[in-house]
């Protein structure tokens, strides 16, 4: 399957933070969730794709085009939502839309109007009068109104009520139905990913620690619960992280069959993305 977005060897450093050789690909017709705790580098990756910050190494290709060499063509195919929507505040939404529309040849005014109605956004209302959630909805309406082939959404569900959040995730699933489009959305709300994402990329401290289809994660990763035998130095290299508590030992494995064979008496629970994130972020690693 061709890649809608392909990132390889991406590096960017700031004082006290660095993205280290980030590589992953979002296949066409799929939704990828970029997940990680605050400060993991999710927003930096989104900004690098949109050329809002300068990469120090690596390559970003959108439908085979380099995001810097073919910047306009690439951005034409991208619909974006930033984490904190910032626009000139004292103008009505209809004016903002009329400014954005000419930049996109495929702008669909009827679709935009329909979305404003659906999201209950009055076109005459000024941007500054909107709550954070409404600003997010407006940004989504802009991003979805020009038939973008790749949607890049940075924390799109933050500030949204649960009902609209569910609707948004369903809508994203609808966007990729033609098998040609793709969605990359960053979040630290892992339940959003469980519901929608086809692929998950987990970032920790600027590094990709896991990038895989969600079904693979479901099939291969588990939380193993047991006693001190899980700390056996010979067998515990099977675990990606181990946590001790007064009630026993919990470990994270990415190889359920091998772990089952090694610890037949242990309890195996399917690992959620949140489990994986929490274990890898805070658990003592045995790699």
């Amino acid at each position: 399957m061709a890649a809608a977005l392909e990132i390889s060897g991406l590096r960017k450093s700031y004082k006290g933070f660095a993205l280290k050789d980030v590589s992953f690909a979002v296949p066409e017709g799929s939704i990828m969730g970029l997940v990680g705790p605050n400060g993991a580098g999710k927003t930096t990756i989104v900004k690098l794709i949109l050329n809002l910050v300068r990469r120090q190494a690596g390559a970003i290709k959108v439908f085979g085009l380099d995001n810097l060499a073919d910047e306009k063509a690439v951005k034409n195919r991208i619909g974006f939502v930033h984490e904190t929507p910032a626009l000139v505040e004292d103008v009505p939404l209809r004016d903002i839309a009329s400014v954005v529309a000419p930049f996109y040849p495929c702008w669909n005014p009827a679709l935009f109007q329909a979305m404003l109605r659906e999201f209950e956004l009055p076109a005459g209302k000024k941007f500054k009068a909107l709550s954070h959630g409404m600003k997010m909805k407006f940004s989504l309406a802009l991003a979805l109104s020009h038939d973008a082939d790749l949607l890049i959404l940075d924390e799109p569900t933050s500030g949204l009520d649960p009902v609209f959040r569910r609707e948004l995730l369903d809508r994203l699933a609808g966007v990729i139905q033609d098998g040609r489009k793709a969605v990359l959305f960053s979040t630290h709300v892992t339940s959003d990913l469980e519901r929608t994402a086809d692929y998950v990329t987990l970032l920790l401290d600027g590094e990709v620690v896991l990038s895989a289809p969600r079904d693979d994660i479901r099939d291969k990763w588990a939380v193993v619960k047991g006693g001190p035998e899980l700390l056996d130095p010979v067998r515990c290299p099977l675990f990606r992280a181990v946590r001790e508590s007064p009630y026993g030992v919990e470990a994270l494995t990415g190889d359920i069959p091998a772990s089952r064979a090694a610890f037949p008496s242990a309890v195996f629970d399917r690992a959620s993305i949140e489990d994986i994130m929490v274990f890898l972020h805070s658990g003592a690693s045995h790699d």
């Binding site: 306009k72 951005k75 626009l87 996109y104």
Partner: peptide, 19 residues
């Protein structure tokens, strides 16, 4: 300066436009 004040450049530069 108005655009600077509202931090709206991030949005504008995300549109299909080069610097």
């Amino acid at each position: 300066g108005r655009e600077d004040k509202f931090k709206a450049e991030t949005f504008t530069l995300s549109l299909p436009v080069t610097r």
